[in-house]
Design a protein around this nucleic acid. Structure first.
Lengths: 188, 188
DNA sequence: CAGTCGATGTCAGTTGCTGTCATCACCATA
DNA sequence: TATGGTGATGACAGCAACTGACATCGACTG
């Protein structure tokens, strides 16, 4: 038998999401999260850089999926369409965790500090996409613009998907939003 | 004679920018900033919500300029072009404070917490632009997309302008970046 | 079975940030 | 000129986020 219960990290993540949802982010102390997970405050900070980061553990996975999808898109596709394809794949992944995604987003929407963290994670995704595009031979600023515009589309589609009571399809919302962007930037 | 030296807020802003530049953001304590400004830590927090906010005092002015410029653009202009015009005006304002803008940006580029704050300020600008577009009769998601895409363009042009050793013209860079975006979203 | 290792606990300390009350030049008004 | 209100600041206590240093002890390794 092990000295400690397994999956300390996961227990901390779940405890944090619960408490942030119950009392709000600011009203929750790290000590309380650790206690609910059966650990100490110090151990929390060994697993997560700060009190916010515990909500963003999956960001790395999402970024890897985005990058690998984009990298494996045929070179014949226009940059913006390759980005769209990658974001649709990411959307499909999020859709599998629909309930979790919505619960998490409700917590983030209720606190500005968490929104800041979310924005820099999205900026990191954009940066990764731009880097991958550059490796495919797309030059700047086109690469950065395609990536940033893509992330903007993704944000808007995701907000729509989260707020909708209906069972909308996220990848499809992303596709439609890309079409809207094309219409908008065409000068109409 | 006054009981206190005038412009406490301005003194705090200048002291903070200096110290963040000299030692870096994290290595500077609020007490040090206050001391250099001839004030106390408590007074710092009466003027600024937190240690980061002292670098973003001008954000409100910029947002007002953006919104009023956008609101006064003739309705005949396409949304994306109206946004472009507003951002060019904002670019012209920043260009007047070229040295200050670059010094400030160097400090922000050196610290992730400050980048987070910058991102949420930009998101706030996008939100304000989208709201103004909606008042002009543009529907969502077109309004949000035009605003977010515009801010993305602005970010990229601004980065270019800051990093360039030459005396590039920011409004012109913004205009060119908008053209690039149109080319990119056209699917090439 | 001795020694190492890795995840956790314990504890003390710094700093960002807040609440509360005191101070005192300035100003209006009687 | 006296009086009282106001607003910006100081002084002080306190909480919570985060960090560094060292101790603990089951699991693994040779």
């Amino acid at each position: 038998m092990s000295r400690w219960e397994p999956d300390a990290r996961g227990r901390l993540e779940r405890a944090a999401l619960e408490l942030y949802g119950e009392r709000g982010f600011e009203q929750t102390t790290v000590a309380e999260i650790a206690a609910r997970a059966g650990l100490t405050e110090r151990t929390f900070f060994r697993h997560f850089a700060d009190k916010r980061e515990v909500l963003f553990a999956g960001a790395g996975t999402l970024q890897d999926l985005l990058v690998s999808t984009l990298a494996s898109t045929p070179d014949s596709a226009a940059p913006i369409d390759a980005v769209a394809a990658a974001l649709e794949a990411a959307g499909a992944l999020l859709q599998e965790r629909r309930d979790y995604a919505r619960q998490r987003q409700a917590v983030i929407a209720a606190n500005v500090d968490l929104q800041e963290r979310e924005l820099i994670k999205l900026a990191s995704l954009a940066s990764a996409l731009a880097g991958t595009l550059r490796q495919r031979g797309v030059r700047d600023p086109a690469a950065s613009l395609a990536a940033e515009a893509g992330i903007a589309v993704f944000r808007i589609a995701f907000e729509l998907w989260v707020s909708e009571a209906s069972q909308a399809d996220l990848p499809q919302l992303i596709r439609e939003s890309f079409d809207e962007l094309k219409a908008v930037t065409a000068g109409k």
